[in-house]
């Protein structure tokens, strides 16, 4: 263990959108909130997680190579790039979900509050509890809505005064409470796709993680459901650091504070495609004045 202690205090308030409207998102268009937030973004924010020269391998195949990247406190960081560029692979190595694949191996260092999450004495279970994940396809458990949300606190042995309150809070924060409060005991499978995805977000929030990883959370949803999730992300940004992989560049442009652009290089001999980080910067900069030609080609739709 390093001597690092986890502080519960919020980081630099200036980094968060501290406008009076921020509590009432419904009244403020998403665009405004994001624009306001972006005005306050520091150039070099406090990092909650960092990748230092990270390579991810599947067996002998290198899926991602030498990624160095920092994720700011209470910021939304988007990972974009063409298919097969290793964004999802990188995301899964940030909370050790890659451990579940026998052949996967991570080299380099991934830190959380400065502590390496792949260190020998670190419990992957604890890593996954504190760095939550929302998946591409909504994956509610075959249980009631209530039990879906209560599952995390139960299995992690969270000490709670009232599970009902935990469930209500999580569902409220995920903007789902009003829609489901009268049918908490019903199966989560009865919800629409968008509702299921918000339930999965509520489920993740319920274990009080510090970082939420989202792996193309809207790719299975219609535009209305997508826009609700995006609103939600911007709202959650006040309390969580969010890292999102998305195929949808507009989505990154709409919600992300910073954006990392990845691309894939094909090995001439084997044809294997290895992902690498091309450019990482403020979203506004990536989408208006990217410094790398490949980024510009991608965002202007010339390839990918």
């Amino acid at each position: 263990m390093t001597s690092h202690t986890y502080s519960t205090a919020k980081p630099d308030e200036a980094a968060a959108p501290d406008s009076p409207e921020s509590g009432q998102l419904d009244a403020t268009p998403l665009v405004e909130v994001v624009r306001e937030a972006r005005r306050h973004l520091p150039l070099d924010p406090m990092k909650i997680m960092e990748c230092n020269d990270v390579d991810v391998y599947y067996g002998a195949f290198r899926a991602v190579t030498s990624v160095s990247l920092g994720f700011g406190y209470n910021e939304i960081t988007a990972l974009i790039g063409p298919s097969g560029c290793g964004k999802s692979t990188l995301l899964r190595s940030l909370n050790r979900m890659n451990d579940l694949i026998d052949s996967a191996r991570v080299e380099g260092e991934v830190t959380f509050h400065g502590q390496s999450i792949y260190a020998k004495d670190v419990d992957p279970i604890e890593v996954r509890r504190r760095i939550g994940m929302v998946f591409q396809k909504p994956n509610p458990f075959p249980k009631s809505i209530y039990d879906n949300v209560a599952y995390g606190p139960r299995v992690t042995g969270m000490k709670v005064e009232s599970m009902d309150d935990v469930v209500e809070e999580a569902l409220t924060r995920a903007a789902l409470w009003d829609e489901v409060k009268d049918k908490l005991k019903q199966s989560a499978f009865g919800l629409s796709g968008g509702q299921q995805q918000r339930l999965c977000i509520a489920r993740t929030i319920a274990v009080r993680p510090e970082v939420i990883l989202m792996d193309e959370p809207c790719s299975a949803l219609d535009p209305i459901a997508t826009s609700r999730i995006e609103d939600l992300m911007v709202e959650l940004r006040q309390d969580y650091s969010i890292i999102i992989v998305t195929h949808n560049m507009q989505q990154a442009a709409r919600v992300a504070d910073r954006t990392a652009f990845f691309t894939a290089l094909a090995d001439e001999g084997t044809g294997d495609r290895t992902g690498l980080l091309v450019e990482f910067d403020l979203t506004t900069k990536i989408f208006s004045a990217p410094s790398d030609e490949r980024t510009e080609n991608y965002i202007s739709g010339r390839f990918g």
Binding site: M133, F135, F141, Y151
Partner: peptide
Amino acid sequence: VPQEIRQGSLALGATPLQTVWRQTLPS
């Protein structure tokens, strides 16, 4: 039982044994 269910459970900080006992096996 779909892999997504196991992953969903593990991503919440459940142990592999809890995941088997509470998700995979009941399903």
